[in-house]
Write a protein that binds this DNA or RNA. Structure first.
Length: 792
RNA sequence: GCCGGGAUGAUGAAACUGGUAAACAUGCGGCACUCAAAAUGCCGUGGGCCCUGCCCUUGUGGGUUCGAGUCCCACUCCCGGCACCA
């Protein structure tokens, strides 16, 4: 069969399809970034997902399987700058090409609901959601130390910084204090952790999200420094008797006050300046070297013991976590221990244990006044109770998660729909200072705020958006007073666009709302979501946050966007390394289709190994599935069904159905291969059923065969076969006979053999090995194994 | 350092709840067809030995069990994530 002729033909016919009736099933793959060409990685995401979607549709589900493009973002600009094409032109040209390539895969995408995030019709609603968040107090503008990538010339979210470097271009990220837009994802920290449990997600992904949010329970305790209050967060109040000094972060606001009271203000000042100079990377690389200076002449006090404590400034204490200050317990905290060793501070053990210091585990309290001699867990509770009663502290839960910085100083993104007005400031207004002047922050509800076509989209040196140079765009009318005002010129991080796209699919052309409530109810939440594991802490966390925020604002009635999540693995080049142009090991799917056909490529991707594991693309491996399809094509078809083949076939049907459901595509295919290897012909009905099994994997091939056989309608409109329990039953089975756990013989027996009979046969057949020995025990396992235990 | 996940033939792997380890496929070897090659088909393919048969074998060492790739303990290596989060 010539795949080239048949694939185009069927793809054209299928495009006319519309979803049928049945229980809804929203099946989604993470939408692609229009980078230029569809690569094997896309295929590995989309093809097996399509197998699943087709399978579910054949089972009678009303499957919704949309596709779109995550079209804003830096690569468009970078590529455009390099080649002198406008990002918009570049993006839409790529989309055009990718659409054709996607169609060549033979997926059952519903193209009528396609979305492109850089279309004004889409980003209008991205902007609208941003304003909803703003009005709900979940989007705010603040001067914060931000991660700035000098090469991309924009700030980055914490999630986009990997080991102190920009995840995109690998440049070393700098810290810059700039006014930025942030989303208050921290408000949802607790729920983002607690509601993970009910989701059918890979455990690993859940754990990673939990760790990223980083919940820890402890207490805030009121220490004092030079008579002023210094709250400190700790997860170990039980070690408070072991606190031997206090440490403030260099950015701590209290420092400016106590500095002047210290005997060494210059030294402190120098240290603060020095640590401010350090980049994120330097701080990280110095994790072992704990620097800091002693604040001479200033003492702190332990509220529980009344003990006087020396005070330090050290940058191992971070301003953005807890209260920016810690009680140092060197005996029971590794970092405090290292610092104490270096600066000769006393180390006081308060938890007994056989282990050496620093000991961070649990044990019995010692040298802890009234709280001595109890398990540390109990001490933790009692000490906290005592502190709360005496108003010296309170229980507190802290999260590592930081708010999400969403403004980008780049061109190719959704404009932030905000206007700054200096004329109409009111008491209740949210305000900001632009070049020293006070401005009210006002939402521009005249949406969409269109991204203007500009020719100069190069980012500026000082990290200002290219839009800030566009006077036309920047100059706006105040939506409240009508006076001249200034428009925000930063754009939104693309992750904002992709945090809600799964909602838009339900109603992609709606101009009145982001999606009609009825349509949302009809399709959402997403039942099965398939995509790469690299999105664990960004896209997936942000989307969950958006869903919860939109729910609380009354727009949604569910709390989690993706009920079931599966990750596909990574496909490596034939040399076993990650595919990249520079290594010359890129497999071009277009060429593979040309050579072997879309069906063979789809099937090979499914067959190569467990779906979540990925693997090495083997040019010879694909021949296996190709040969298999050829053998199906050549199989002799007889008029009547053979009963024995029926048995084999129905067992295969059972296995294939179960395996696709579990997304074990590789074993589903191997069962079909095994079946074909065991038969030399099939009856017409048997071939009909077999083609149905094959249909999700090799849709064009199965359709062509289906028509050649003169079966009715489309193979894809038929129901996926249900196995017949009676036919699937085996009459004879192989029973394995063991003596002392060693396989000694195999016998054919009736499937329904009784335990007594099995025992009898087994004893007789193994006489050779049990001769002269005493049989102590005979274990019969169903009809497939008997183990005879005997001794000399 | 902490948290996950993994290690099975030459290779990708299979074995769901403990019950025949290596299904299926690639590769390799042999044979058939062919003038020849490709394609296709058939056979063989974990290791060892005193080869009709027996012994060993799922990263290493121990344990539980009639029986362990699967469960428990300790260790080695590989991959992914986090990383001064008090």
């Amino acid at each position: 069969m010539n795949h080239k002729d048949i694939e185009k033909k069927w793809q054209k016919k299928w495009e006319e399809k519309i979803p049928s009736e049945g229980e809804k099933l929203y099946c989604l793959t993470m939408f692609p970034y229009p980078s230029g060409d569809i690569h094997v990685g896309h295929w590995y995401n989309f093809a097996p997902a399509d197998v699943y979607a087709r399978f579910k549709r054949m089972q009678g589900y009303r499957v919704f399987f949309p596709i779109g493009f995550d079209a804003f973002g830096l690569p468009a600009e970078n590529a455009a700058i390099k080649r002198g094409i406008h990002p918009e032109t570049w993006t839409y040209e790529n989309i055009e090409r990718m659409r054709e390539q996607l169609k060549s895969m033979g997926c059952i995408y519903d193209w009528s609901s396609e979305i492109v995030t850089c279309d004004p019709g889409y980003y209008k609603w991205t902007q609208w959601i941003f304003l909803e968040l703003f009005k709900a107090g979940l989007a705010y503008r603040k001067r914060v130390p931000a991660n700035f990538c000098p090469s991309c010339r924009t700030v980055l979210a914490n999630e986009q910084v990997v080991e102190g470097k920009c995840e995109r271009c690998d440049s070393q990220v700098e810290q810059k204090e700039i006014e930025q837009w942030l989303l208050n994802i921290r408000n949802y920290a607790e729920e983002l952790v607690s509601s993970l449990d009910d989701l059918d997600w890979p455990e690993k992904t859940k754990t990673m999200q939990k760790n990223w949010v980083g919940k820890s329970e402890g207490a805030i305790i009121e220490f004092t420094v030079a008579g002023r209050s210094l709250p400190v967060f700790t997860t170990r109040p039980d070690t408070i008797f072991g606190a031997t000094y206090l440490v403030l972060s260099p950015e701590h606001p209290l420092l400016s006050e106590i500095k002047s009271e210290a005997e060494n203000p210059a030294e402190i000042e120098d240290y603060i300046a020095e640590s401010r100079m350090k980049t994120e990377l330097e701080r990280i690389s110095e994790t072992k070297e704990k620097t800091g200076v002693y604040v001479k002449g200033v003492t702190g006090m332990n509220p529980l013991t009344g003990e006087e404590l020396p005070v330090f400034v050290a940058d191992y204490v971070l301003m953005h976590y807890g209260t920016g200050a810690v009680m140092a317990v060197p005996a029971h905290d590794l970092r405090d221990y290292e610092f104490a060793k270096k600066h000769d501070m006393p180390i006081k053990r308060v938890i007994s244990s056989k282990e050496d210091l620093p000991f961070e585990g649990e044990g019995e309290t010692i040298h802890s006044g009234d709280f001595s001699g109890m398990p540390s867990e109990e001490a933790r509770k009692r000490i906290t109770d005592h502190l709360e009663k005496s108003k010296l502290g309170e229980r507190k839960v802290n999260y590592k998660l930081r708010d999400w910085l969403v403004s980008r100083q780049r061109y190719w993104g959704a404009p932030i729909p905000i206007v700054y007005c200096k004329h109409c400031i009111k008491e209740k207004d949210k305000k900001t200072f632009i070049e020293g002047e006070e401005h009210a922050i006002l939402p521009d509800e005249n949406l969409p705020v269109l991204l203007p076509w500009v020719d100069d989209f190069n980012p500026s040196e000082e990290g200002k958006s290219p839009l800030s140079r566009n006077r036309h765009f920047k100059e706006a009318m105040c939506p409240r007073c009508g006076e001249k005002a200034e428009r925000e010129t930063d754009t939104l991080d693309t992750f904002v666009c992709s945090s809600w796209y799964y909602l838009r699919y339900a109603d992609p052309h709606n101009e009145e709302s982001f999606a009609d409530k009825k349509k949302i109810k009809e399709w959402l939440p997403v039942d099965v979501y398939i995509g790469g594991a690299e999105h664990t802490v960004m896209h997936l966390l942000y989307s969950r946050f958006f869903t919860k925020a939109l729910r609380d604002m009354g727009h949604l009635r569910f709390s989690e966007p993706f009920l079931k999540l599966r990750h596909q693995g990574v496909i490596l080049g034939p040399d076993g390394r990650k595919m990249s142009k520079s290594k010359g090991n890129v497999v071009d799917p277009d060429k593979e289709i040309e050579k072997h056909g879309a069906d063979a490529v789809r099937m090979y991707l499914c067959f190569m190994g467990p779906y979540d594991q990925g693997g090495v693309w083997s040019p010879s491996g694909i021949m296996g599935v190709k040969r298999f399809l050829d053998r199906v094509y050549k199989t002799e078809v007889k008029k009547d069904n053979n009963k024995e083949i029926d048995g084999l076939l129905h067992r295969t049907i059972k296995k294939v159905g179960e395996d696709i459901e579990r997304m074990h595509f590789n074993t589903a295919i191997s069962s079909m291969m095994t079946f074909l290897n065991e038969v030399s012909f099939m009856g017409v009905d048997q071939m009909r059923l077999f083609l149905l099994l094959l249909a999700p994997f090799a849709p064009h091939f199965a359709e062509e065969m289906w028509h050649n056989m003169n079966f009715k309608g489309s193979v894809h409109d038929a129901f996926f076969p249900q196995h017949d329990e009676e036919l699937a039953k085996e009459e004879k089975v192989t029973m394995v006979l063991q003596v002392n756990g060693k396989v000694r013989a195999k016998v054919e027996v009736d499937a329904g053999i009784s335990e007594r009979k099995a025992k009898k046969i087994a004893l007789k057949e193994t006489e050779k090995w049990t001769e002269g020995k005493e049989v102590k025990k005979v274990i019969v396992v169903g009809n497939n194994l008997v183990n005879i235990v005997c001794v000399e």
